[in-house]
């Protein structure tokens, strides 16, 4: 024992460490979230919480349920693979409402909307249909094209008379 006669103060210092360590273990037991480590080094519930965030876009399947006429028209045209909300914006509020008419979507302005995709630019893929500003200036696109099926069976009368260019690119 005599070897340890003068170690009292050292043991006290070490004792502080041991006490602190046990306090740490106890606190740790209570503060670490229960689902931590469920799948890996993270809070397992975080996955479920992320999955529970609210949506704004309903998805085209939801639209097609009611608007089967539009869906049908669209499915035969060049915009068959352009989904509804790509032009109409997020519509979950409309689609999930008990009375959808209370959340009526705003009708897009085709003079602005169509250009987002179809304005001519050399940066776009060459086979993508594009129109320059000189294509029917002053007219709304929907005056001639049905946005749900934009190809025209027949060129309108005034077009043949005008010098404006037809859309470039795209298959006939």
């Amino acid at each position: 024992m005599s070897a340890f006669k003068n170690t009292g103060h050292l043991l006290r210092f070490a004792g502080l460490f041991v006490i602190a360590f046990f306090i740490f273990l106890i606190v740790r037991h209570f503060v670490v979230p229960k689902s931590f480590g469920e799948y890996g080094h993270y809070r397992g519930n975080a996955i479920k919480e992320d999955a529970a965030r609210p949506s704004y876009y309903a998805g085209h399947e939801a639209c097609e349920g009611c608007h089967s006429d539009v869906a049908d028209k669209k499915s035969h045209g060049k915009h068959a693979h352009v989904n509804c909300e790509a032009c109409h914006g997020p519509q979950l509020a409309h689609a999930s409402a008990d009375d959808p008419s209370k959340h009526k979507p705003v009708l897009p302005d085709t003079t602005v909307l169509c250009k987002q995709c179809h304005a001519a630019s050399a940066a776009k893929p060459k086979n993508f249909p594009q129109v320059g500003d000189d294509h029917m200036p002053g007219m709304a696109c929907k005056d001639c094209h049905n946005p749900h099926s934009p190809a025209m069976d027949q060129a309108p009368a005034e077009k043949t008379a005008s010098t404006s260019k037809a859309p470039q690119g795209g298959k006939k």
Partner: peptide, 23 residues
Amino acid sequence: CDLCYHRITQGLTTACCENCPTG
């Protein structure tokens, strides 16, 4: 980006894919 985790776990696609006009 979390790949619209709240959508893909419900059988929907992501908002970006849903709204990409050219696929």
